[in-house]
Design a protein around this nucleic acid. Structure first.
Lengths: 329, 329
DNA sequence: TTGTAAGCGTTATCAC
DNA sequence: GTGATAACGCTTACAA
């Protein structure tokens, strides 16, 4: 008698149904089979609580219906929204998500990729900070927000366009003394284009645009000092500030408050990301909102596309502006 | 000649190293083998970029080194922190995390479990809302925050104790007219004990304690109305409010502001969860903080424990109080 | 110690 | 259309 504690196999189902093993396999792979046979097999499978073993299946087919998602941190609202989107898009296509968190550690990122390759996933979606990541060209890979090389497709928001949009909004709202503020990773990424887009608008109009770009290691103090140093008779030298992301914008607003400045009356502030408060659903600040859902959807789409022969190397998705109280009107 | 596009197998490594297949296997399983053989194998493996196929391995060993994490939503800060914790704890033990998101849908939860069983994971960690979830007793399962039956181990925060703690704090801070506010799922869960603990403290002291408990479907309007209805000459009938979670506390603070009440001067407010602002790291409100990291760690520990014969059916982890500006001092 | 061979649960290729 | 049978890549007795 078959032991009850180990899961039933196709062989058990075949015996229970009184058919050959191959027939059972066909039933579970939607390969035509006699109607009565199919019934018998399905019946037997239900009785036994049979589930196909996808590892054994993967061993044969070399497809595992699972993809790895590599993220630096899932605690940040942008990343968690992205994870949610990717996981759902994958699930909708019958794929499992294997989640790896790297804590921004380049070494961990590389280890992740190795581990995941060993796990024989069908592909990887990664948002990584290791500039010289060694990824097996045999394994489909889609990068989010970080461009590696023409052979590694990357999907990102239209960061440059977002920067331009922020500049145009600020101009439209009457700003004439703009400032761009940035803090982030030392390794270059797509988001660097935000500042470029912002500045390009003013350059084109022959207007000056101040900017301060920092690396994470430097902390926010330099920004606070910079702002304090640009106070002039109770007035700031700038009347429109674009921050590289919402997190920074929120901090900057606090700094401005410390300096006795009103937002948006004295200074207008635009962030980037489009994050919303977890309880109220409100934007934390006026912001350029990234299409997180589409980012995820597009990434999955590019990864799973049957014909991956000529994928674009970079896909930019459109961003939008949303008012969140730190701009006038 | 072996095709370059399919990953190398143990056989390839054996051939490359000039040893037998079994020897290669032993090297990768840390089974004693001649030092020079080991060297040869490792060398060959590196040359070929060999990675053991964990699916094939799992097929033999019936262990896949992966566990499924089932969560309703990963966008909420509490869940994302939990996911991060579980994923890290699992990774530290050499396990992969398969993430499933159910969107609070009981049917999706059941489907997840099925899918995941078919995927032959080594266990499941789930935070689910389906009260009559059908889980295969053969598969190790740990529930978070929801108690099913003595046979399904559950790990949760000390919700009752947290409620008591909130009550004691409020008393200590001079409150004499307490109110408990709750909104949540209709299906009973561990978090229901928060209100019970809170009320028990006042009952014990012979003090009255008002309470309003709502289901998600009802929305927040009833709470707003309730508060408005308890205004008496510009004063609220309550001077200390305990909310079942931080999300509600944040909303309630807004309602109180609408009524012209100052927090914490006129009313003190305590939430539950211990969520922190993504940019500043500040608590959103005074709160009872759940030990998310320990919750995750403990869950993983209970799931992966070698001897699962006599696990506790419920483990409660201690919570702490943190001031977040909605209580005095 | 090292090599050999029998499966693990599937799928796929054949004869029937 | 159905049913043996040989892989898939690996582990693990067991034999050398």
């Amino acid at each position: 008698m078959k032991q009850r504690d180990s899961a039933p196999t196709m062989k058990d189902v075949a015996r229970e149904a009184g058919v050959a093993l191959g027939t059972v396999s066909k039933v579970f792979n939607d390969i035509p089979v006699g109607e009565d046979y199919r019934k018998r097999v399905e019946e037997a499978a239900r009785r036994l609580g049979y589930q196909v073993n996808s590892y054994a299946r993967g061993l044969k087919t070399n497809r595992t219906c699972s993809v790895a998602l590599i993220l630096p941190d899932i605690t940040h609202p942008f990343f968690s929204a992205l994870a949610q989107g990717v996981c759902s898009a994958l699930a909708a296509r019958g794929y499992r998500t294997i989640l790896s968190i790297t804590a921004y550690d380049p070494e961990a990122e590389q280890k992740c990729i190795q581990m995941v390759q060993q796990n024989k996933v069908d592909g990887i979606i990664g948002l990584t900070y290791n500039p010289e990541l060694d990824i097996d060209p045999r394994l489909p890979y889609v990068s989010i927000d970080r461009y590696f090389s023409p052979s590694v497709p990357c999907v990102a928001s239209d960061n440059f366009g977002g920067g331009q949009l922020a500049a145009e909004k600020l101009l439209e709202l009457g700003c004439t003394r703009p400032l761009f503020l940035r803090i982030g990773s030392r390794v270059p990424g797509e988001s660097d284009k935000r500042g470029d887009g912002f500045e390009s608008v003013f350059r084109q109009r022959g207007m000056a645009c101040a900017a301060l770009r920092l690396n994470n290691e430097e902390g926010l103090e330099p920004i606070r000092d910079f702002l304090a140093g640009h106070m002039d008779g109770g007035q700031l030298d700038f009347d429109g500030i674009f921050c590289v992301n919402d997190a920074l914008a929120v901090r900057v607003r606090d700094f401005l408050a410390e300096l006795g400045l009103e937002v948006p009356e004295d200074v207008q502030l635009i962030g980037f990301d489009g994050l919303r408060h977890f309880a109220t659903g409100d934007f934390y600040c006026s912001t350029i909102v990234q299409p997180v859902g589409r980012l995820a959807e597009t990434g999955v789409d590019m990864l799973l596309r049957e014909d991956r022969s000529n994928l674009p190397s970079l896909v930019c998705l459109p961003v939008t502006y949303a008012s969140g109280g730190t701009t006038k009107e």
